Computed example of a mutant assay.
Amino acid sequence: MISTVVAPDQVIQQLNWRYATKKFDPNKKIPAEIWKTLEQSLVLAPSSFGLQPWKFFVVNNPELRQQLVEHSWGQTQVVDASHLVVLAIKKDIIAADVDHYIERMAEVRQVPVDSLQGFSNVVKNFLNNPPVGLNEWSARQVYIALGQLMTSAAILEIDTCPMEGFNPAKYDELLGLNEQGYSAVVVCPLGYRAADDKYAVMPKVRFPTEEVVQYI
């Protein structure tokens, strides 16, 4: 029998347990040690080239969160959840961003910066000739991080609600993201479902496996 860190059936069980939580219990907060794990799931998220063209803004200020409700189509998850994460792209990344990443790589792996020049050139050439707009490409990377956050949360039985129903421009303005060169892409409240959230017990609707998975 193959040994795994987490039992395969437990992974499926937790993914079935997860749903887009519509109503959070505002009185239940994520313990600090669990939040640190979720925070690291964002830090450890993969991205193309490992470039990490993002920043994750955790909004703790209750007044700010209240102001965000009207720019979130009235969705109160942004105030009721224990934590609110705004996943943002670094806008219009340039060669200097690649240099910053290469310097970090050299530091972590304890190699000379010059030894990474070939890889640096590959990334910079990509930035000069991307298959899509650079900000769109960065947004795609952000969704990878969102998926990792949500899966990690599900394993820890922390509820999440990924949200695109918000006004990014207003979020950028209220949170001061523009001044830092970032722009909100997607929002993810995290916490604990309310006992009376009717969506918690609704069966998950998915197409049959054979309809969405094809072996070639």
Rank of each mutant, 00 (worst) to 15 (best):
Q110N: 09
Y19T: 04
F119C: 04
P8V: 03
P46R: 03
A195T: 13
G147C: 14
D172V: 00
Q66T: 15
S152R: 09
Q67L: 07
P162C: 11
P130F: 01
I155W: 08
M1C: 01
F56G: 10
G181K: 02
L156C: 11
V213T: 10
Q67F: 03
I34Q: 15
T209S: 02
N61P: 05
V132Q: 06
G165R: 02
A106L: 05
A45H: 08
G165E: 06
Q117T: 14
S152N: 12
T151C: 09
L44M: 14
I30E: 10
T151F: 06
L64C: 02
Y101P: 00
N167G: 02
P53Q: 09
K28Q: 15
T160W: 07
I216A: 06
N16F: 03
D196G: 09
N60P: 11
E136W: 00
R140V: 07
M105Q: 14
V187F: 07
V122H: 08
S152W: 06
I30S: 04
G133V: 02
S138L: 03
K29L: 13
I93S: 00
T209M: 02
F56H: 10
Q214E: 06
T209K: 05
K22T: 10
T21E: 12
L68Y: 09
N129D: 12
S72E: 11
P168W: 01
L116V: 15
I158R: 08
W54Y: 12
T160K: 07
K23R: 15
I158S: 12
T76Q: 14
V58Y: 11
L42W: 12
K204E: 06
D172M: 00
Q75L: 14
P31I: 11
S115W: 04
H83G: 03
Q117S: 10
D97E: 09
A139W: 04
P31M: 08
V187H: 06
E70S: 11
E179R: 03
R104F: 13
Q66Y: 04
P62E: 03
L51V: 11
L175I: 06
W35H: 11
S138E: 05
A169G: 01
V201R: 07
C161V: 14
W35C: 11
D97K: 03
D25T: 08
R65Y: 09
G133D: 15
Y182A: 01
K204Y: 04
N121Y: 02
Y19M: 07
A169C: 01
I94L: 01
A153Q: 14
V111D: 10
T151G: 07
K124D: 07
I102L: 11
V113Y: 12
P162Q: 10
L84K: 01
F207I: 04
S120A: 13
D25S: 10
E211T: 10
V11K: 02
D99T: 08
V111Y: 04
L44Y: 15
A96M: 06
R193Y: 07
K36A: 15
H83E: 15
Y143V: 04
C188V: 12
F166I: 11
V108G: 09
G181C: 03
S41A: 15
P31E: 14
E39H: 14
G133Y: 02
N61S: 06
N128L: 09
G133C: 02
P46I: 07
Y143K: 07
